[in-house]
């Protein structure tokens, strides 16, 4: 497979995941805001923005800024995903192209600042539904070969980074060791965290609706069966990288080692140790993801010609 094609498939998938994540987090917080006492709202939006990866320093009335930032991130990510798909239109199935193209045009229509302010949930649900649909279509219409593996790798590396960052910023704000949520409002914030990862229902199935911060952390970081947990994502990422490695016979142990190290830290670190320094643990995951991303580029996409000739 041409490196350029792999690159486009990888980024198509990353951008779509980013749009989906941003839309869902925005939807959750817009919802929480509705039933909150306005005095406590001041801290929400800086936190949400930080959890979405923005470095912007907010001043004054943060809500409009946060809203504009999220809208921009959703719409531009969809645009970028579609542009990447367009570059490799011959490599993906026409059903995939049609869905991502449809989402693009719909997001242009309902993603204007006016309509987003008036009806934000239209865009939120359009994006999350379309992203789910797109991955369903991908799984059932595309050859599960190398290209499909790059799509999976892009999707899960993006998801792992977002989830890790989201958990980190939430725990910094609301977690006090050993204490349970003190107020109804705080309780709702913990539900909000789970909802941001589509995890509320799944959590209840495992632990019942009894919300305890350590359990939430355990579930979102370490659950092996839940598709939005960090561990699940890391394992799928590792499988896809291994499959690509097999398909290309590059025998790169660099990526395998990085992915293995990441998986091991999630499989073998005791929860108490994680909770004693959650921030560092989350940063470590994101750092390794960054190295894996760079490794994918070095091994498969923008490798120096001289190195490849020597091999």
């Amino acid at each position: 497979m041409l490196s350029r094609v792999a690159d486009s498939l990888y980024w198509m998938s990353r951008y779509l995941e980013r749009a989906e994540h941003t839309a869902r987090v925005m939807g959750v917080h817009l919802n929480l805001m509705l039933e909150h006492d306005l005095g406590s709202e001041g801290r929400r939006w800086p936190r949400v923005l930080a959890s979405l990866g923005s470095r912007e320093k907010l001043q004054g009335d943060e809500f409009p800024t946060a809203q504009a930032y999220a809208l921009d991130q959703i719409v531009s990510s969809i645009g970028a995903a579609r542009e990447n798909a367009r570059q490799v239109r011959e490599q993906i199935s026409s059903e995939m192209w049609e869905e991502i193209n449809r989402l693009f045009h719909e997001s242009k229509r309902i993603g204007t600042p006016q309509s987003f302010r008036a009806q934000p949930f239209d865009l939120v649900s359009a994006v999350t539904q379309s992203s789910h649909l797109f991955h369903g279509i991908t799984d059932s219409t595309m050859l599960h070969g190398e290209g499909w593996q790059f799509i999976q790798a892009g999707r899960f590396i993006e998801r792992v980074q977002h989830t890790a960052r989201l958990i980190d910023s939430h725990f910094q704000e609301f977690y006090r060791a050993g204490a349970e949520p003190s107020s109804a409002a705080e309780h709702m914030e913990w539900i909000g965290l789970l909802r941001s990862c589509t995890a509320f229902e799944a959590y209840c199935k495992v632990y019942t609706a009894d919300l305890r911060p350590e359990r939430v952390a355990e579930f979102l970081l370490l659950n092996a069966e839940f598709p939005h947990s960090v561990r699940f994502g890391v394992e799928r990422l590792g499988q896809s990288l291994e499959a690509v490695n097999q398909a290309t016979t590059r025998k790169s142990d660099r990526l395998g080692k990085l992915a293995g190290r990441l998986a091991a830290s999630l499989s073998y670190t005791p929860l108490e140790e994680i909770m004693s320094n959650l921030h560092e643990f989350s940063a470590g995951i994101r750092r390794l993801c960054g190295q894996i991303h760079a490794g994918i580029y070095q091994v498969y996409i923008s490798y120096p010609i001289e190195a490849a000739l020597g091999a």
Binding site: S3, A247, T248
Partner: peptide, 12 residues
């Protein structure tokens, strides 16, 4: 490279 043309694939 060295007057040979290559295409860049994921397999090298």
């Amino acid at each position: 490279h060295d007057n040979l043309v290559y295409m860049r694939t994921t397999a090298g």
